[in-house]
Write a protein that binds this DNA or RNA. Structure first.
Length: 224
DNA sequence: ACATTAAATTCGA
DNA sequence: TCGAATTTAATGT
């Protein structure tokens, strides 16, 4: 078992591929380690690869068309991103930073396009993922209108729990309060207060170095 | 920014 | 390899 075999094994989109498609995918995969605080990709960079988080935590800072407001999102194990840029063949509209040292898999553009055009299972996966993201963009419109901090933190956590984007995610997240703060765009102490509120409402349980979500639906819908 | 507590690591037997 | 001692990391205020 090589490392790329491992990677393929863990990737959701590989599950229904034919053996031939799997071989092709394996040949297009590269693994990289991004150290904490390093830049994974920059705004304006032409597309090079589709990326998957094997392990770690990334922060995606996306900027609106006019370069105005920025919004954040987290990316953790199991998540794949960049398909929007590759399909439209445009430059990246967001910047990605490693919040902690992370193992990232890269699938080169050529292989990605080959799979997209030749593998029904792969295309099906992509449609599902793109559709899911569309829903997020709609939710984001509301998000940017200064909601309360507790709500922002709640939504940040809810996004990390998304079953479509992170198929293997369970109710317990290994993420520090500092990291949650970076993702939600609030300070650590505000994060701490927000988490306490969420815990008081029974939405989560605070643990050392992480949280467990008790009521995901409440997390998604709560407004302070 | 500081004090407290939890976890991870080191080290001696 | 066990656990006590020390260091590092995360939390709460």
């Amino acid at each position: 078992m090589t490392k790329t075999d491992d990677t393929l094994d863990q990737a959701v989109w590989s599950r229904d591929l034919t053996p031939a498609e799997l071989d092709r995918a394996r040949a297009g995969l590269t693994l990289r380690v991004y150290l904490k605080d390093s830049t994974v990709c920059m705004i304006g960079e032409p597309f090079t690869s589709w990326m998957g988080v094997m392990d770690g935590l990334l922060k995606v800072r996306s900027v609106s068309k006019e370069g105005k407001e920025a919004s954040f999102a987290g990316m953790h194990a199991g998540g794949w991103f960049g398909e929007g840029s590759i399909l439209k063949n445009e430059v990246r509209r967001y910047e990605v930073i490693a919040l902690r040292t992370s193992n990232i898999a890269l699938l080169d553009q050529e292989t990605f396009m080959w799979l997209f055009e030749n593998s029904p299972a792969f295309s099906r996966f992509l449609v599902r993922q793109l559709n899911e993201r569309l829903g997020h963009f709609i939710a984001q419109v509301e998000y940017d209108r200064l909601l309360g901090t507790t709500t922002r933190v709640a939504r940040t956590l809810a996004l990390l729990l998304n079953r479509v984007l992170y198929p293997d995610v369970g109710p317990s997240l290994k993420i520090t309060q500092e990291e949650i703060g970076l993702l939600a765009g609030v300070t650590r102490s505000v994060t701490n207060q927000a988490l306490k509120q969420l815990e008081a409402h029974g939405a989560i349980r605070i643990e050392y170095g992480g949280i467990t979500v008790l009521n995901a639906e409440l997390l998604r819908t709560i407004v302070e």
